[in-house]
Amino acid sequence: MKLQSAPVTIIIALALLAVVAGGLALVGGLDIRKEKNPGDNELAKAAATAQPVTNCFESRETYSAVARTENVVPQYGYPNVKCSNTTSGVLWYGDPFDGTIPMGEMPKVADETQGDFVNAVVKPREPRLTYFNMGPDGCATCHNGTIVPFPKDKTPRLIGMHQDIVANSLQLMHGRGALWCLDCHSATNRNRLLDRRGNEITFNQPQRLCGSCHGEKYIDWREGIHGKRIGEWKTGGKKRWWVCTECHNPHTVQTIRFQPINPEPPPPLPRGMKIADYVRGDQSAH
């Protein structure tokens, strides 16, 4: 009897399970408006109600960080930026001019490529530079001629510092071997850059240095074709311009032209679609 009772109980339990499952299936089947992709909806719901991200970045991660500040535009209760919950990329600007300064004097060029610089503002680059902010005098805190002596000439040599920026100073990944640190950085004033004519340029205006070689892109940038700017769309309106180094890393452009990033989440598949690449999956006539 004992040997028989076990299978009997199992059979009864299975039958019960089947009845319950059938009932559930029936309920599910009757609900014809049930969403086919509940997972996607759950994800979207979770993302929509999650806590806002406060540490964000604009174009380049770690190089263009921006912190979310609440209620910058009190009229609408806008924060300065809204960021992605998945990648922390800045998605939306409540105040496009938050934390900006005037672009500063831009040189006139002789041809017709006068930029729309009247109301141009930029985000200053200096507060975002790691080594620049290590001392009160910027880079000159160490590079003042005594703590670190000034180099005697511009001959390329192996340097023992700042290898997180440039791994090997003799193989700078910019200019295909033709450039070295002191071609762009001033030897005696480390808080400034140096263009080919010997003019000192602040870190906030890298376009004046980059443009001295990359003239074609510089013209496009001045014209408003290359590069990003936000704010007003009108010609002559107030715009925030992105400068070169907010998007491009001047020390690694040769190897890493663009650091691949993760995209924002995709939309849910349309109802009934099983796989996204339906063209490849289904070769029959449709």
Binding site: T86, F258, I261, N262, P263, E264, P266, P267, A276, D277
Partner: peptide, 11 residues
């Protein structure tokens, strides 16, 4: 393909 996943790197 308009539905490429969020865990693949772009571009």
């Amino acid at each position: 393909d308009s539905y490429y996943p969020a865990d693949e790197k772009v571009p």
